[in-house]
Amino acid sequence: MLLDENIEHKKELRHDWSRQEITAIYNKPLLNLIYEAATVHRMWHKADEIQLSTLLSIKTGGCPEDCSYCGQAARYHTDIQVQALLPLDTVLDHARRAQANGASRFCMAAAWREVRDNRDFDRVLEMVSAINAMGLEVCCTLGMLTEDQAKRLQEAGLFAYNHNLDTSEAYYDKIISTRKFDNRLHTINNVRKAGMTVCSGGIIGLGETVEDRIAMLCTLSNMPQHPESVPINALARVEGTPLENLPKVRIWDMVRMIATARIIMPSTMIRLSAGRMEMEEEEQAWCFMAGANSIFTGEKETLLVTPNPGVSEDMAMLDNLGLKPMVKKD
Rank of each mutant, 00 (worst) to 15 (best):
W112P: 02
S267T: 13
F121M: 10
V82W: 00
D66Y: 08
T197C: 01
N189P: 06
E36K: 01
A38T: 00
D182K: 14
E5W: 01
A100S: 15
G205L: 01
H77S: 11
T241M: 10
I203S: 00
S229G: 08
E301K: 15
E114P: 03
I204V: 14
K248T: 15
I295Q: 09
C139I: 10
Q51C: 13
G157P: 08
E65H: 00
C70W: 00
L13D: 09
I80A: 05
D253M: 09
Y69V: 05
D48G: 01
V327I: 15
N293F: 04
Q99T: 00
H186I: 11
E208F: 00
V230N: 08
N308M: 11
K328I: 15
K28C: 07
A110T: 04
M127C: 07
E301N: 10
K300C: 06
D253Y: 00
A74F: 04
N27H: 04
F159L: 05
N101V: 05
L158I: 12
R276M: 13
M254Y: 07
E211L: 06
T197P: 00
G310P: 03
V327H: 10
A290W: 01
F121Y: 11
R123N: 14
G310I: 06
V128W: 07
D66H: 08
I203D: 02
A234D: 04
I58M: 12
C218S: 14
L185F: 00
M269L: 12
I25V: 14
A95Q: 02
T302Y: 06
D319M: 13
C70A: 13
G157H: 12
E208D: 13
F296K: 11
M289P: 04
L272Y: 04
I203L: 09
R123A: 10
H163Q: 15
K10S: 12
C107R: 04
A236W: 09
C139W: 05
N162D: 07
S168W: 10
M269C: 13
K10R: 12
A234V: 00
R14V: 01
G207C: 11
G291Y: 12
A234Y: 09
D330S: 09
S200G: 09
D16W: 05
R152C: 09
L33N: 05
N190M: 09
D122N: 03
L272F: 02
D4L: 11
A194W: 13
D4Q: 12
N183V: 03
E126A: 14
R116I: 01
S168C: 10
Q149P: 11
T90P: 05
E244S: 14
K248R: 14
D79V: 02
V255S: 05
C70Y: 11
K180E: 15
A316V: 12
N27E: 14
A98H: 02
L13I: 15
G207V: 05
A111K: 11
Y35N: 13
Y69I: 13
H94Q: 14
E8H: 13
D122R: 11
L272S: 02
E280M: 13
L217E: 05
V138L: 03
K174C: 03
E280L: 06
L56F: 04
M127N: 03
L304Q: 08
R271W: 06
N32C: 02
F106G: 02
H226D: 06
C67L: 10
